[in-house]
């Protein structure tokens, strides 16, 4: 390392901080502050929509800030963003382009919609069995569904939260389908782009390879790698943009109760990856047993 780069590193480090520290802080404030606050409001009966809205917005901004920070980090070192060392062994296999797969966000939303749909089917089915000749029961929805979820936490929550995804509007279902449709087009394209970047790198290295001349070869590889990282950063930025837009699309098509349930689910999922008890067991667990 020469003097120039030492001073460059020094200067840079004074005004910047490791992304790992940022992430840990971000995560702690999600786990210790924002999630409990949101859950508290979600438990208050009668619920205050304006209070809930404030917490939903705060949580949404918290995620947006993280996605933005990830973009900034990618411009510093894309390789470390794509292969984040700050994620634990439980998280790493589920990392796609530096973070969660965008499909995961729509699947989370689907999981609420589908659970409600299943509950509805169950309700209709049981009613059909119990009251075969009584057509009037079907119209009396609501109560049967709450009974099914008796053991779940949804029961003790205010009606608006517990029933957030009950009979979702047509617009919501249509919008979810549109978002999914967009993803099905964009995700494979991003995967192909990432592959082509690697292929172009290898082709450049192979094409300029002169057997035996080690120094020249190393210089060629070094230059090709710099170019490759720039290309990869471009692919990553688009992937992250996609993630961010799916996230905000979901929050724009859901009402405040639905958004709260969605954000709670997402935050709990992230927090779950860092459950100390689970991680301790996980660390010891053999793959084949």
């Amino acid at each position: 390392m020469n003097l120039l780069s030492i001073s460059a590193t020094f200067g840079r480090k004074k005004t910047s901080r490791p992304f790992k520290d940022y992430y840990n802080e971000w995560f702690n404030s999600l786990e210790k502050t924002l999630l409990p606050q949101l859950q508290n409001v979600m438990l208050t009966d009668p619920i205050s929509p304006s209070q809930l809205s404030i917490h939903v917005t705060t949580m949404q901004q918290h995620f947006q800030a993280y996605y933005n920070a990830l973009d900034v980090a990618a411009s510093d070192d894309i390789a470390q963003v794509l292969y984040p060392e700050w994620r634990n062994s439980l998280e790493k296999p589920f990392i796609w382009m530096g973070d969660l797969h965008p499909y995961l966000l729509t699947n989370l939303l689907r999981s609420f919609l589908d659970v409600e749909e299943e509950a509805e089917h169950y309700y209709l089915d049981t009613n059909e069995h119990d009251h075969n000749d009584d057509g009037g029961v079907k119209g009396d929805d609501g109560e049967g569904v709450i009974k099914i979820g008796k053991d779940s936490e949804f029961c003790v929550r205010p009606y608006e939260v517990a029933m957030a995804y009950r009979s979702p509007s047509k617009t919501l279902s249509t919008r979810v389908e549109q978002i999914e449709c967009g993803l099905r087009l964009m995700v494979p394209a991003l995967v192909v782009r990432a592959r082509n970047v690697q292929a172009a790198f290898v082709e450049r290295v192979g094409g300029e390879w002169e057997g035996g001349k080690r120094d020249e070869a190393k210089a060629v590889i070094g230059e090709a790698m710099v170019a490759e990282m720039e290309e990869l950063a471009g692919v990553f930025l688009d992937a992250n943009r996609l993630r961010r837009s799916v996230f905000s699309d979901i929050l724009s098509v859901t009402n405040v109760y639905q958004a709260a349930v969605f954000l709670e689910g997402l935050a709990q999922f992230l927090v779950g990856f860092k459950n100390i008890t689970l991680l301790r067991e996980f660390d010891k667990r053999k793959l084949a047993n």
């Binding site: 901080r17 992304f19 940022y22 900034v72 980090a73 510093d76 470390q80 963003v81 190393k218």
Partner: peptide
């Protein structure tokens, strides 16, 4: 092997991935 060497030099030179302090404020 060369990619490995270049990558380890890169890691030494870059240090951990960082973001400017002003961009890192959480809500």
């Amino acid at each position: 092997e060369m990619i490995h060497q270049i990558s380890s030099q890169q890691k030494l030179r870059n240090g951990p991935v960082s973001i400017p302090v002003k961009a890192s404020g959480t809500n």
